[in-house]
């Protein structure tokens, strides 16, 4: 199959994906036989109980880890054939991340955190773009604060700005409201969907929250490492 011709509108194609880890008690199968196609601009929610393999799945799709079986095509390129540096380049160019625990670099200010992905790709307009996006998420007055000086909601807004600053084709969000109170969480989700629409980004969202899942176009449910 030639993905370049047949899958022109497909951003993610996972075929027969599996992940197993070796423990002292033998091999543990976390994911098996996952087949998944995600089209450009689509928003997908991955739901399931704790331990069902949701985070492992988006880790594999985003190239943060390697599967033990199967293949992944991302933006037409065979992700599973790449080495770590190759995957890093893809992540920098095409992927944005939002994590449950924000994952900001503690030593950097809000502005520097947002500038970072652009700097990694050698973008000369890093500062201007980062400032603009921080203003967009309502943090123009917090540019030079470090994560410790920001509230949880503000940290997640910085993380959103960082995720969108490279105008990624795909955004992976892993329980983005898990560490926030209900009201702040709702506000962050609104912002996430707004930015998603403005940038026409493909969204892959892992959540426990079925209410949140319904805001996505499609829901995939995982149980015991397989798709229902």
């Amino acid at each position: 199959m030639n993905p370049q011709t047949n899958l022109s509108n497909t951003v993610i194609l996972a075929e027969n994906l599996g992940k197993a880890v070796t423990t002292s008690e033998g091999t543990l199968q976390i994911l098996s036989a996952i087949n998944l196609t995600i089209q450009s601009g689509e928003s997908i929610a991955i739901v399931g109980e704790s331990g069902s393999g949701k985070s492992t799945l988006i880790g594999l799709l985003a190239g943060l880890d390697t599967p033990t079986s199967g293949t992944i095509h991302l933006n037409g390129e065979l992700l599973t054939a790449m080495d770590e540096d190759g995957r890093a380049a893809i992540r920098n160019q095409a992927i944005g991340f939002v994590f449950q625990s924000f994952q900001l670099l503690q030593g950097l200010t809000a502005l520097e955190n947002v500038m970072l992905p652009l700097e990694l790709s050698g973008n000369k307009q890093a500062k201007a773009s980062a400032e603009a996006l921080l203003e967009r998420v309502g943090l123009a007055h917090r540019l030079h604060h470090t994560p410790k000086q920001l509230s949880g909601g503000e940290q997640q807004r910085v993380a959103l700005a960082r995720a969108f600053v490279t105008r990624p084709a795909i955004l992976f969000a892993d329980e983005p409201t898990g560490n926030l109170d209900r009201k702040t969480g709702a506000h962050i989700i609104d912002l996430l969907f707004e930015l998603n629409q403005e940038n026409n980004t493909t969204l892959v969202l892992v959540t426990h929250d079925h209410g949140l899942a319904t805001r996505c176009q499609r829901t995939i449910e995982l149980a015991a490492g397989g798709m229902l």
Binding site: D85, A89, R91, N92, Q103, L105
Partner: peptide
């Protein structure tokens, strides 16, 4: 711990090993 975390995060954002 901090270093491992930061390295992982940097790599998530696209930094390569050489950097």
């Amino acid at each position: 711990d901090t270093r491992i975390h930061e390295s992982a995060l940097m790599r998530t954002l696209g930094a390569n090993r050489r950097l």
